[in-house]
């Protein structure tokens, strides 16, 4: 175990002890170990450096390393907690944990706010919402006129921007999602509750007996 960990630490910058990560997250020790197997696979798919770069993240999500997607880029940026252009193992597990059914609602609301605050200004601005709408229209088959897009933006800001200053702050966002709980559905991935049985496709090699977390 000690040998395994020191080797992992050498090969995977940002590797953290599964017991420690399990204590910080809703994942069990064996689930963190399973996530490490997944992490090893993704992080070696383009450059075998023990870290996930943006290209590898896109490849894992879309099976296409060149595909551009605004939301995938934004999720990558949020997973890249240290802002080094790569995701290390510890941040991978802690970031995925936000999507765990047992993660706190506050963490989910906070993450979703950051996800939509594209420029990181501390506000969700109208131009950012428009950018996201246009991005999703480009991705999907949906076609909406400029006038319709502006109508949707007007409706959104009349509901969410309570103080009518043209941007949504975190408190307004918290109140908005409490009135629209369906918006938080995308922040929970039910299968994270039991990843070792739901996703048997990735190799699982537990060397630690599970402890209650």
């Amino acid at each position: 175990m000690g040998c395994f960990q020191s080797k992992a630490r050498r090969q995977y910058p940002g590797y953290e002890d599964p017991v420690n990560l399990a204590s910080q997250t809703a994942f069990s020790v064996s689930e963190v170990e399973a996530l490490f197997e997944l992490f090893k696979s993704i992080s070696s798919s383009v450059v075998d450096d023990g870290l996930i770069n943006k290209e590898e993240f896109h490849l894992a999500l879309f099976k296409n390393r060149k595909r551009e997607n605004l939301f995938a880029n934004r999720i990558f940026d949020l997973f890249d907690v240290k802002q080094k252009g790569v995701i290390d193992f510890g941040d991978f597990v802690r970031s995925l944990n936000v999507f765990h059914p047992n993660a706190s609602h506050e963490d989910k609301v906070d993450f979703s706010f950051k996800l939509y605050d594209l420029d990181g200004t501390g506000f969700i601005e109208r131009k950012e919402v428009k950018q996201m709408l246009i991005a999703l229209l480009c991705e999907s088959e949906m076609r909406l006129s400029d006038e319709t897009i502006e109508m949707i933006l007007d409706k959104t800001f009349s509901e969410a921007d309570v103080n009518q200053d043209g941007k949504i702050d975190k408190l307004e966002w918290q109140e908005f999602v409490s009135r629209n709980p369906s918006l938080m559905k995308i922040m929970t991935l039910p299968y994270l509750r039991d990843i070792t049985t739901t996703f048997p496709s990735f190799v699982f090699n537990s060397e630690v007996e599970d402890i209650a977390t």
Partner: peptide, 26 residues
């Protein structure tokens, strides 16, 4: 439901072509 009857975030969360579950299909 017509898109114009929804707010932007409803549309975004409905249409977001991003499924993190694909990560586990690696």
């Amino acid at each position: 439901e017509q898109p114009t009857s929804m707010n932007a975030f409803e549309l975004i969360s409905m249409s977001q072509g991003l499924n993190l579950g694909n990560l586990f299909d690696h």
